[in-house]
Design a protein around this nucleic acid. Sequence first.
DNA 1: GCCGTTTGCGAGATCGTTCTCGCAAACTTG
DNA 2: CAAGTTTGCGAGAACGATCTCGCAAACGGC
Lengths: 360, 360
Amino acid sequence: MVERRSHAPTIIDVAEHAGVSRATASRALSGYGRTSAATVERVRRAADEIGYRPNELARAMRAGSTSTIGLVVIADFTNAFFDRATKSIVDAARKRGYQVLISNTDEDPDVERGAIETLLEKQVDGLIVFPSAIGHSEHLEAGNLGGRPLVLADRRLDDLGVTTVTTDDFTGTREAVRNAVGLGHARLGFLITAANIAGQTTARPPALISSVRDRADGFAAGAADAGIPPEDQVWHFSEDVPESSEAAVAEMLDLASPPTVIFTSNNDMALSVLKVAGSRGLAIGREVSLVTVDDSPWAAYMVPGITVVARPVEQLGELAVERLVAEIESPGQPVEDIQLPTELIPRASVADLRSPAAGR
Amino acid sequence: MVERRSHAPTIIDVAEHAGVSRATASRALSGYGRTSAATVERVRRAADEIGYRPNELARAMRAGSTSTIGLVVIADFTNAFFDRATKSIVDAARKRGYQVLISNTDEDPDVERGAIETLLEKQVDGLIVFPSAIGHSEHLEAGNLGGRPLVLADRRLDDLGVTTVTTDDFTGTREAVRNAVGLGHARLGFLITAANIAGQTTARPPALISSVRDRADGFAAGAADAGIPPEDQVWHFSEDVPESSEAAVAEMLDLASPPTVIFTSNNDMALSVLKVAGSRGLAIGREVSLVTVDDSPWAAYMVPGITVVARPVEQLGELAVERLVAEIESPGQPVEDIQLPTELIPRASVADLRSPAAGR
DNA sequence: GCCGTTTGCGAGATCGTTCTCGCAAACTTG
DNA sequence: CAAGTTTGCGAGAACGATCTCGCAAACGGC
């Protein structure tokens, strides 16, 4: 039975309907202090009858906590990273009684700043941030967060001294190189996003986002492990747009002696390899080999399957929530830098150059 | 300069610091009523100096609106639907000054009910719901929403009489059939999710979620258009898990005379076709043709490219936000049932059976 | 039957804002 | 220069919940 007054029923309406005071109604429903069983029953029934729904805003204001965490992500589709991370965070938060206020920065630091400001004004209990850029992170410093805890995900910001959950992309990429070299590859291409130096082909990248830097360092380490000389490492930087990375792939394949395998630092670039190689009639896993970071159902089932460095994205999301909630509910947790292990999943996109039949 | 008191600075602190009253400070910062320019300046500076951040909770309580919308989605990865929809909704909401509180139901009606209850308690101004199931939708009726507007996305719930934004999957699937038949296909397989009747192979599905039903009806209509008799339509229902759909694909391909083309109602099932066909050495676009609903970067760039019915998911998200915000800001909008046009993108996964060279 | 303890409940303060009033000072006008 | 109008500001109520107190009634023991 819905009341016909315009405003939603409040606890005062419940109290009136049950013939008790505001305080008693609150006690009966929230179950603190002393209330007789009969009164509890009467108040509960009254609340049901008038369709009472507690106003969480008022409760939060009194209590000083909203049971809401702010999530600031970078939505990129193709890597299936955004959705896997978001879903795992939303689910993990719900399990612990928290809701998620989500913001997307699209890698724009100004948007990130504004999003965080808004989330703080909405009094989130804590923040999980996938930082959009290195440098310019004053807005993430403890002093500007109003004392609310922060967990960084996917990318480290070393000078911040805050708990961070990432994947070990260094080791992952290094292993990927080891695997390809083991299959006989000796000339390696590496395609990597770095908007600021797109077009460059040096092997020593400047300041990069930690996740990208780890992959670059892992590639370099893997090549060094195998004794691949610099002249057999073809580095290409590109912007994070298809045109740029496709041009880079084309340039690589146009070399007098092109790399036999291309490592890409994300799925977008792997798709560019697929596209450019396809348009030239070069078969993946035969004429061109491919390894990328991040698994996806498509990478697994297409023919040939794509060899990938799989990252435990769901685990990353869950851990971020776990650490954040721990800090919210009992402040003073030690700062941790958690690196989750990746897994190399070898499929058919890396040709075995050792077998005599290979290469047709 | 951060104050050393434990609580975050409030407008009272600003007022004290500026030597004015609470009311004047509020006026100066919010810019209503009359305030002298000098006072505005003084208050602004005071706010800056003590690092004042308005408490949106308090403002929302007073104002009766939170500038927050609740989003209830079904997170399924492979279709790249969740992330595209979520991103477009979050971005469109931000553009209009709204934040998004997100919940994932994983298609569980009980979770959906609880999520909506929580969102309403948090006083969202409106809801966008991707409903998880037909029937059992009392919790979505206007009376149980405390007067807050609702927009349904992706799936219709006809008895609710609420504004709904969907894609025209009926026409999309019908066109896909027309396209395949035009290329010479005369025996058609259709793979569709319907947990309740998994394993069935009848052509008349029972109560289905509207999006799935539309695709089934579109397939039936397309087959009828082309005069394909029922015995040349191979319908297969499966649960929304790989094992189930893979079994269905295997069954289809094991028929004495298997369909030459398989239509799948989502990307999960298309991947199952890829997997099962791949494991049998059947080449897509040669021995087996494939069409699916929902485009993705992978579908475009793999070899062969997958023919798809592309849905304007971003537009769907934006429109849902637009309609919802319109209703929030000026109630009494007409109820609309918006169907966005889909687009058939022909690629190489459907073999041209008319060409003599086909099939080798 | 008296005094001390427990029990149940209500009055009122509080969280941080916004906004309506009313009041005094500063202007305008004839 | 008196009367009316505008300007700037402060006091206090309101949003809807929680929670601390204090008070009265009921209960206990001797």
